[in-house]
Amino acid sequence: MAVINIHSRTLPAPLSQVGVLIDALAGNGDRLWPISGWPPMRFDRCLEVGAVGGHGPVRYTVEGYQPGRWVRFRFTGPRGFDGFHEFTVHDAGDGTTTLRHLLAMHARGPARLTWPLAYRWLHDALLEDGLDRAQRDITGQLPRPARWSRYVRLLRTFAG
């Protein structure tokens, strides 16, 4: 099963200001990854090609990294996640920048069930919380924060 999943937010800031959010992922100054109620993103070293880590049961290796612009993570787990996810920044014009997260994979074996039934829902909620965090960091405000669906709240009770 092919999976393409995109989340993005256009922020009123130059590319250089939004790009540093990518550079700080999993570090002490991380202002993008949601920290409240989600497994932290961690690596065996600083954010660089070859770093190994992940968040919760989702494991990956940093496959590509261009500071201030792009980072790609190649999945190594859970079983059946054959693909990658990445953060990129794009100049949207008029002093705005789009921060984008792309997940592209083939769900194989057990992931043909676990992705659509659980991981997708949790992934979507986590990404929207992260984009909220980025928006709050860049603008100082968040007029409409993302809300978890009942299903996400139910899944989170089972996830512990």
Rank of each mutant, 00 (worst) to 15 (best):
M1P: 04
M1G: 14
A2M: 09
V3P: 02
V3H: 05
I4G: 07
N5S: 10
N5M: 12
N5F: 13
H7A: 05
H7Q: 15
L11I: 04
P14N: 14
L15Q: 03
S16A: 09
S16E: 12
Q17G: 04
Q17D: 15
V18P: 00
L21V: 04
L21M: 11
I22D: 02
D23N: 10
A24F: 02
L25Q: 01
L25W: 00
A26K: 00
G27P: 01
G27Q: 10
G29T: 10
D30E: 12
R31V: 11
W33H: 13
W33N: 07
W33Q: 11
W33R: 04
P34A: 03
G37P: 09
W38K: 03
W38Q: 02
W38R: 03
P40R: 09
F43K: 06
R45W: 07
V49R: 14
V49C: 09
G50S: 07
A51M: 02
A51S: 08
V52A: 14
G54W: 00
H55Q: 11
H55E: 12
G56S: 13
V58Q: 04
Y60V: 03
V62F: 00
V62N: 01
Y65C: 04
P67I: 09
G68V: 04
R69P: 00
F73G: 00
R74K: 08
P78D: 09
P78R: 01
G80N: 15
G80F: 07
G80D: 08
F81Y: 10
F81L: 13
D82W: 15
D82E: 13
D82H: 08
D82Y: 12
G83D: 00
F84H: 11
E86Q: 08
T88K: 08
H90Y: 08
D91K: 11
A92K: 08
G93H: 10
D94F: 15
G95H: 03
T96K: 12
T97G: 01
L99W: 03
R100C: 05
H101E: 08
L102G: 01
A104S: 15
M105K: 01
H106G: 15
A107H: 13
A107M: 14
R108N: 09
G109P: 01
P110N: 04
P110W: 14
A111T: 01
L117M: 12
A118Q: 11
A118D: 05
A118M: 13
Y119M: 11
R120T: 10
L122H: 06
D124L: 07
A125I: 00
A125K: 03
L127I: 11
E128K: 07
E128F: 08
L131G: 02
R133A: 02
Q135E: 12
D137W: 09
I138D: 00
T139H: 04
G140S: 08
Q141R: 12
L142W: 02
R144F: 15
R147C: 10
R147D: 08
W148M: 13
Y151M: 07
R153W: 05
R156P: 03
R156E: 09
F158N: 07
A159H: 10
A159V: 14
